[in-house]
Amino acid sequence: MYFLTAIGQYIIFLKKIFSRLEGSKILFPKILDEINDLGMSSIGFVSFISIFVGAVVTLQVAYNMENPLLPTYLIGLASRDSLILEFSPTMISLVLAGKIGSHIASSIGTMRVTEQIDALEVMGINSASFLVFPKICATIFINPFLIILSIALGLVGGWLAGNITGICPTEEYLLGIKYEFIPFNMAYAIIKTIIFAFIITTVCAFFGYNIKGGALEVGQASTKGVVYTSIFIIICNYFITHLLLN
């Protein structure tokens, strides 16, 4: 019952975000700010994770292909596909749910408990669209770049790991990551990322926006936001994959 009410409230919240939008003169600078705030600040973090994940993926693939009949370049190929299809879009989105999602929930939640949202409403501003719409635009725009960066750095990490350990020499690895490349896989990764970006922003904003109480509830809301975002992402991941890769 609680769940159904929450879904209903979430849909009403979405409707509020997309109604009575402010003019582009006000929204555009805000979107740029959010890109900086939510996207740029995640570059270092995403890069660091991606390099290591790429390295680990390569080592694991190699570990599973001990059969000498299998050509070595398959290590590069398998690493590439797991990075593009799953590790970068899904795992990095989950990581971003923790980083930017909790930031969104707690910053909007703080505005709620300190009456800043009421102050916006008194000025005749649709607070939901004013606060959340620019964040949606920013993450939908910037997250695909983060994911592309993550894929690229993941491949670099895999190459480094293969080279350092000597399990996959450079030529074999390069051959592998170019072998029978399917461009649609990239499209699939980007579509997933965009949908996940939308989920991260709106679900976390929803929990922050509807806080009742004080500082303690701000913490709880950001935890809840991240948990539900992750669940949503995992479920959507299944359905998107089912739809796009079948």
């Binding site: 006000i26 505005m111 300190t114 009456e115 800043q116 102050a119 008194v122 000025m123 005749g124 501003i125």
Partner: peptide, 29 residues
């Protein structure tokens, strides 16, 4: 609402903005 001014019990200033941005905010909007 454009004709209304409100001072909240806890001030409710936008804490991501400077003092002058806060005062300018209703004007820009």
């Amino acid at each position: 609402r454009k004709e209304i001014g409100m001072v909240f019990q806890g001030s409710a200033l936008f804490d991501s903005m400077t003092v002058s941005e806060n005062v300018m905010f209703p004007l820009t909007m």
